[in-house]
Nucleic acid binder design. Structure first.
Length: 429
RNA sequence: GUGGUCGUAGCUCAAUGGUAGAGCUCCAGAUUGUGAUUCUGGUUGUUGCGGGUUCGAGCCCCGUCGAUCACCCCA
């Protein structure tokens, strides 16, 4: 038994886990690129002040923070948006607007682990900076939908819950509620679906509002509300509006959001939100003390909840299995049936690898049966047998279970021609 | 940070307070040039860790670490 254990809330990625992780990364990347986003990355470690600046002192309780040897206060990043704001504002003159940037990397939060929540998790972040239009919001929402679909999730599996903080700002202004109550109010709304109505009513009355008024407003806020008009038009034109459900209770915590806010929710399993985001037009100005005022919007999707959802959704499972098989299978396995031929076998191994094929072999003298077992295990398409009949070489198609003898001189050409054709079927179970 | 449940072989789990086991996996052989099945044999444990009670603790008690669930929080 090993003496050392994985640090609480952190995960090991054994090959089978890493394969799933890479499938998720590949999917995120390919869809983001399809949308014209470019990849960036920031440091995993930042000055603690960067996060304080954005979220205030109270968040330090949830930070992995420490002092380095020079007594600098540092924190593992709990999110990438502050780093993004720092990077984008620092060199915003170098890039034409709008910036469409995405990133994939680990984030860290010092919290109690439980289902869907670990202390290190990997996020996909997509942001558009320098464009304040609802068209940019629509682009992000469309991206989040297409990412979900790329994982094999269907309309019955997930929905986008959409709102806009402006509708609440207007609601409060219409009732002459002081601006200082806004964040308190939004916190109440955020929790309204999981708090007892009596408790909510008490809290609302404290800032001069009635529960009935708020509820009635929520119930009558639908997709005909003018705040959604442009966004709706842009998504309808793309044929994606049917993925949207207006839900005024979505306000996304007490974050920096200023307009559109949305979450990707699964419909079948009652999980946490798979992704969330929105518009945060004031953040760049805040982070630069007003010197760079750049509108922005974005969303983040974590790997943990997404992974749970993919495992629980049959359609996504199939895609995942297919991708894992494609990633792990090899083109050929070289069987050395006669040790005297190992030199010729290794020369062929090298030539095939040089040509870009995925080829493996066993290291030392092993029974032929074991070598075929290993080839099977590796999901090889071909077995290439070097034995006493050399210079004739046996090439066996492990899927069709047929084999031919090929002269050594023609071997490489024969194998490349065979691999160039589509396999007859995928070897399953 | 708070509370509930749990922790035995690589995995899934047994074992009235009385000698720590099974299945699967893995490795080898049956089978010295062909993938499956079957059969045979074999490796693996300070029972998470540390104390305490007891003639005797995997089992009871305390602490601790971890997992899990629910709070808190969710940027």
């Amino acid at each position: 038994m090993a003496t050392f254990k994985t640090v609480k809330g952190f995960r090991d990625f054994y090959p089978e886990d890493c394969a799933i992780r890479n499938f998720i990364f590949d999917t995120w990347r390919s869809v983001a690129r399809r949308y014209g986003f470019v990849e960036y990355e920031g440091p995993a470690l930042e000055s603690t002040d960067l996060f304080r600046k954005k979220s205030g002192d109270e968040i330090t309780g949830q930070l992995f923070c420490f002092e380095d040897k020079a007594k600098r206060e540092l924190s593992m990043r709990p999110e990438v948006t502050p780093s993004l704001a720092r990077m984008a504002t620092a060199r915003q003159r170098d890039y034409k607007k709008p910036l469409k940037w995405f990133q994939i990397g680990s984030c860290f939060r010092y919290e109690e682990p439980q289902e869907g929540r670990t202390r290190e998790f990997i996020q996909f972040n997509a942001d558009i900076l320098g464009d304040a239009s609802p068209a940019a919001d629509a682009e992000l929402i469309a991206l989040s939908i297409d990412v979900a679909r790329a994982f094999g999730l269907k309309k019955e599996d997930f929905i986008i819950r959409l709102s806009n903080r402006q509708i609440w700002t207007t609601f409060l202004a219409d009732r002459n509620i002081a601006e200082e109550h806004t964040s308190t109010f939004l916190q109440i709304i955020d929790k309204i679906e999981r708090t007892k109505p009596e408790d909510t009513a008490t809290k609302l009355e404290a800032i001069g509002l009635s529960y009935g008024d708020v509820r009635a407003f929520m119930d009558t806020t639908d997709d005909s509300h003018p705040a959604f008009a442009e966004l709706k038009a842009a998504l309808e034109a793309r044929g994606l509006w049917s993925f949207i459900k207006i839900d005024a209770s979505i306000v996304r915590g007490l974050a920096y959001y200023t307009g559109t806010v949305f979450e990707v929710f699964d419909l079948q399993h009652d999980l946490r939100a798979v992704a969330g985001g929105g518009r945060y037009d004031k953040l760049c100005a805040l982070m630069t003390d007003g010197s760079v005022d750049m509108p922005a919007a974005g969303f983040a999707m974590g790997d943990v909840v997404l992974g749970l959802l993919l495992k629980k959704t049959p359609g996504a499972q199939f895609k995942l299995t297919e991708a894992l098989l494609a990633a792990s299978s090899i083109d050929a396995y070289i069987v050395v049936a006669d040790e005297a031929q190992r030199g010729n076998a290794l020369a062929t191994l090298q030539a095939l690898r040089d040509a870009g094929h995925r080829v493996d072999t066993s290291f030392g003298q092993t029974k032929v049966g074991k070598q075929f077992q290993a080839a099977e295990e590796r999901k090889a398409r071909l077995a290439i047998v070097f034995g006493s009949e050399y210079p004739q070489v046996v090439v066996k198609n492990l899927i069709a279970r047929s084999q031919v003898e090929v002269p050594a001189a023609d071997l490489i050409g024969h194998i490349q021609a065979t691999l160039a054709t589509a396999p007859h079927g995928i070897l399953l179970a």
